[in-house]
């Protein structure tokens, strides 16, 4: 790829967001505009897929949650300036890159085990 293209794409990347892993429960604080007022809306759920890489200005990720019995999935552009912050609630232990199997599951079957990592030695 040409350097001009790389430069334009690199300039779009955000580096301050935490590392997002598939299977993690996250809270995405997303800036939305209602009329002319701006507020932050949180969307809490499980990341069920990442698309188009990470260091790519077109990268997106899908967050799924179940609200009142209905599954809701939302796709966020990873490097969008509209994302205020992403809070990681829990890192999940998963073996797939895409957790589309969660769509067919309800309740207890749709749980994801937490990934236990060694605590960084203080």
């Amino acid at each position: 790829m040409s350097t001009a293209m790389e430069m334009v794409e690199q300039s779009q990347l955000r580096s301050e967001l935490p590392e997002l892993r598939v299977g993690s429960s996250v809270r995405v604080n997303y800036r939305i505009t209602e009329g002319n007022k701006e507020r932050i809306q949180a969307f809490e759920g499980v990341i069920i897929g990442k698309h188009c890489g990470t260091r790519n200005n077109k990268a997106t990720f899908t967050v799924r949650k179940v609200t009142q019995g209905y599954g809701v999935e939302r796709i966020f552009p990873l490097h969008s300036p509209r994302i205020e912050s992403v809070d990681i609630i829990k890192i999940g232990k998963v073996r797939q890159a895409k957790l589309y199997y969660l769509r067919a599951r309800r309740g207890k079957a749709a749980r994801i085990k937490e990934r236990i990592t060694a605590r960084p030695s203080a």
């Binding site: 790829m1 779009q12 800036r31 505009t33 552009p77 969008s80």
Partner: peptide, 21 residues
């Protein structure tokens, strides 16, 4: 013409752009 990509505007709108050298 180098190619196409997308950039974000300040309000977060993703714009399809063509990069011209």
């Amino acid at each position: 013409k180098i190619g196409m990509t997308q950039i974000f505007e300040e309000d977060g709108t993703a714009l399809p752009v063509t990069v011209l050298q």
